[in-house]
Simulated assay, not measured.
Amino acid sequence: MNLSRRVGVLLSGCALALALAVGPGSGAAGESDHERARQALEAGKVLPLGAVLDIVEREFPGQVVKVEFEEEDDEFIYEIRVLQSGGGILKLEIDARDGTVISAKGRDIKFKSRD
């Protein structure tokens, strides 16, 4: 992994950690979101961000510019945006449990594995 990629991943990881720590707002709701994410990781319900970024790097070359972690109905999803070499943004939804690509949307790609 080159230096600029490492810096981008580090910054994205820091942004994710900050987002998880702060949550969508201040107070108990944000703390609750962070706690659920931490517990899911510790319980082995989700892959660590680094493992997911390795999958993204192999399958979708480019610079990761944004990472979000979401939980809906006991499903955990990493939403990742990748800046591609041609300047387009690729929006990915990755199943946080196993790294499966749920959907990929971008200039030259539209893919959705489930509704």
Rank of each mutant, 00 (worst) to 15 (best):
D108M: 13
E31V: 07
Y78P: 03
K91I: 10
S12Y: 01
P24E: 12
P61G: 09
I94H: 01
L10G: 06
G99M: 05
R114K: 07
I102A: 03
S113V: 08
A104I: 13
A29E: 11
L10F: 12
F111T: 10
D115M: 13
R38M: 14
E70V: 01
E79T: 05
P24K: 12
R107F: 14
V9A: 04
A19L: 06
E79F: 02
F60S: 02
D54F: 09
I89Y: 13
Q84M: 08
F76A: 04
V64A: 11
V46H: 01
L18N: 00
A15W: 01
V7R: 03
D115R: 14
L20V: 03
I89K: 13
A17L: 05
L20D: 12
K110V: 15
T100S: 09
G44W: 10
L16T: 07
A51P: 04
G88P: 15
S32N: 06
G99F: 02
A96M: 06
L11N: 06
I94Q: 03
L49H: 01
G99D: 04
A43H: 05
V22W: 01
G50E: 06
A19N: 15
V9G: 00
K66Q: 11
M1K: 07
D98S: 09
R97D: 05
V46C: 07
R36A: 15
V52W: 04
L47I: 12
I94T: 06
V22G: 01
E79N: 11
L47W: 04
A43G: 03
I109T: 15
I102T: 02
P61I: 15
I77A: 00
L83C: 05
R58N: 09
K112M: 07
A37M: 11
I55D: 07
L90P: 14
C14H: 00
E70H: 06
R38F: 11
K110I: 15
V46W: 02
D98I: 05
M1A: 10
S32R: 10
D73A: 14
E75R: 14
G27L: 00
L92C: 14
G88A: 11
R6S: 07
G50C: 05
L3N: 12
F111P: 04
D73G: 06
E57F: 11
F76T: 01
V101N: 02
R97Y: 03
V9P: 00
D98Y: 06
H34G: 14
Q39R: 03
D115C: 10
L18Y: 00
E71F: 02
D73V: 02
L3P: 11
I89S: 06
G87P: 09
K45F: 13
G50W: 09
L92E: 07
E35H: 10
E75Q: 06
E59L: 15
E71G: 02
P24G: 09
R36W: 12
D54V: 15
I80C: 02
A104W: 04
L83H: 10
E31P: 01
E70P: 01
D73K: 13
I109R: 14
F60Y: 14
G8P: 10
L92P: 14
K91E: 15
I94K: 01
T100G: 05
E75N: 11
R5K: 11
V56K: 01
D108C: 13
V67M: 03
P48V: 08
D98Q: 08
